[in-house]
Nucleic acid binder design. Structure first.
Lengths: 147, 147
DNA sequence: CACAAAGTGGGGAAAAGTGGGGAAAATGAG
DNA sequence: CTCATTTTCCCCACTTTTCCCCACTTTGTG
């Protein structure tokens, strides 16, 4: 399980340190892909496998899903860690996520997301009031779906 | 079951001692998260699993749930106790809860909450009249929703 | 009052994160 | 094909943070 939010610097070569707590849980075969809302997503192998299962193309696949699969799999890459535990974000990935000198690295249960400052402030930062509202929303949703 | 209210100091490194009575009931895998009304919440593993564990993030997750998952998991951390039974509250957590030199640690049945002085005074110091009124309100609401 | 348990504070080693130099590999122009 | 330029990545050095350990104080109990 990946938990917590970390702010790390991205150097001129595009390297970011993945927090040690996360790195321990990331075997070789970990994949980095483009994600919704302009973030980058890091999938451990089993989670990536789940996505593969979900997004198989065939003659019956609707256009939208074909498009999603192409974007997602086409833009993905295997993560390669250096001795210091950093990965290199490609030019393309940095541009997609709008990342320059710093990045937020966020554990979201089964995967990790990487955000630029401004986007994470908008999406992830919560005052107690917002947070209270969000929690009520979760509770409401849960009640509605009968869990 | 967690009962009682304790006032402990938070040192310059952000460490708080969790009361021994509580600690005995907290195995490894205990989670600390942000909670409603600006408190921090400490979940024993089963409680965390019941509340949050089910949600997974993937390409098929709807936008609303993506936001919830990012906030819930991004704001949480696994508790790590030192030999003295203390945990470290991160900078971010302390800021969220408005905690500096002291904190109130409160057992609330199935989980533990951590509050700053001022907020806890508002919540915890109920007069008999207020207490009665709140109890009646909750009972009424429950009856109305048929639980 | 004495002893044990719980809580508090700080010093220092170890780990994590950051930045840059330079060799090897890839790319691209002539 | 060759040479120059860029990119990649491996390695080292430095800074900051974390956390492990010890010692002291306070509280509670017999």
């Amino acid at each position: 399980m990946f938990l917590g939010t970390y702010r790390h610097s991205v150097d001129q070569k595009g390297r970011v340190a993945i927090p040690a707590r996360f790195r321990e849980q990331l075997p070789t075969g970990t994949i980095i892909a483009k994600g919704a809302e302009g973030c980058l997503q890091v999938y451990p192998p089993e989670e990536w496998g789940r996505e593969q299962g979900l997004q198989r193309l065939g003659s019956m696949t609707p256009a939208e899903e074909r498009r999603l699969a192409r974007m997602m799999f086409g833009a993905a890459r295997e993560c390669e860690f250096d001795v210091q535990g950093r990965i290199v974000l490609s030019q393309d990935q940095r541009q997609y996520a709008g990342i320059s000198a710093t990045a937020w690295i966020v554990g979201v249960n089964n995967l990790i997301e990487i955000w630029n400052d401004e986007a994470w402030r908008r999406i992830g930062e919560a005052t107690p009031e917002e947070y209270t509202r969000i929690q009520d929303q979760v509770a409401e949703r849960r009640r509605a779906s009968g869990r």
